[in-house]
Design a protein around this nucleic acid. Sequence first.
DNA 1: TGATTTTTGTTCATCGTTGTACTTTATTGT
DNA 2: ACAATAAAGTACAACGATGAACAAAAATCA
Lengths: 161, 161
Amino acid sequence: MNKNQPLPWDHPRFRSWVAVARACQLMQQSLTRALVHLDIKPPHLDILVNLFRFEGISQQELARKLLVGRSNMSMLLPQMENRGLIERRGDKQDKRVLRLYLTEEGRRVTEEAMTIQTALIDWTLSDTPIEECEAIAVHMERVVGLLIQEERQPLEPAGDQ
Amino acid sequence: MNKNQPLPWDHPRFRSWVAVARACQLMQQSLTRALVHLDIKPPHLDILVNLFRFEGISQQELARKLLVGRSNMSMLLPQMENRGLIERRGDKQDKRVLRLYLTEEGRRVTEEAMTIQTALIDWTLSDTPIEECEAIAVHMERVVGLLIQEERQPLEPAGDQ
DNA sequence: TGATTTTTGTTCATCGTTGTACTTTATTGT
DNA sequence: ACAATAAAGTACAACGATGAACAAAAATCA
C-alpha cells in the first residue's frame, strides 16, 4: 500500500526495456509495410532467412530457432510451399521428418527481402556506432540465453522482494 | 544476382537487431508465464501501467501510446471493465470520448504485476551496467522516433543502394 | 445556421499464434 | 520380437491484432 517505493518508470533498466519493446513493435510494422510488394510478412522472412543459412533443416529445428510452436510451422510452411518459395522433402532415414529447401524463386525473394530489411535496420541504427551495436548484441544475446534456460526450468516464484 | 555482397548476418547492426528481436519475443513469453496467476497478459499490463501513470486518458490516446489500433482497445477495455480492473466514464464536454480510470482492484493488480515485471527485467539485465542500459534506452528511443515519423510519412522506395 | 469534414469509438471479417489432442514413425526396455 | 514411450508433424478451436466500414458527436467553414 506504501507508494514511496520507486516507480518502475524511474528505473533505468525498466525504461530501457520499454524503449526496446516499442522499437521492436515499430520495426515489425515498418518491415511489414516494406515487404508488402513481395507478398511476404516478417514471419515468412524469418523462415526464409533461416532456410537460406541452414538448408535442409527440419520443421522442428526451424521452430526451435524461431522460438515458435511446431504447429505454427505446420500452418505457414504449406502456404509457402504452395507459393513456390520452399520445398518440403521427406527424410529418407526418418520418415517422420520433413526437410526444408528454398526453391530458386524462394532464394531470389529471400535475397531481395534481406536487402530491404538490412536497409531498414541500417537506417534506424545509422546514428548508433558499430561498437555500440556490438555491445547491444552482446547484452541481448545474454538476455536470450537467460530466458531460454528459464523457459525450460521455470524460476522459483519466491523471487519477489 | 552476385553473391559476394556481405551476407546480412555478418553485419553488426543486423546481428544486434536479430538479438534484440529474439530477446523481446522471449521476454514477452516469460512475462506471460509470470503473470498467469494474476489472470492478465502483457497487453493488459501495458494498459494498466499507462492508466496508472495517466489516469483519465481517453481510449484514443491510450491506443496511440501503445502503438496499436483503436479497435484493439475497443476489444480489450470492455473485458477489463467486466473484470473490475478499470472503469470507463464518458467525458462531460465531449460526448464522443470515454475516459479511463483504474479501480481499487485494478490499482492493486497493477502494482503487483509491475513488481513482477520489474523483477524479471532486473534479472535479465543484471549483468548489464546501468550506464549501458541508459545508452540502450537512448538508442532505442531514437529508433522509435525515426520509425514513428516514417510511419506517417512513408519512406521513398528508392532508398536502397 | 446549415453542410461538410474530422474525430471517437464500435463492429466485423480476416489473419497469425498458441496449446491441445491426435496420427504416424522411432526408440527404448524387457 | 513386443510393448511402452518419445518424437515429428497435423488439425482444430481459442484468442489477440488488424483494417475497413460504420454511427455518433464535434469542429470547420461557407
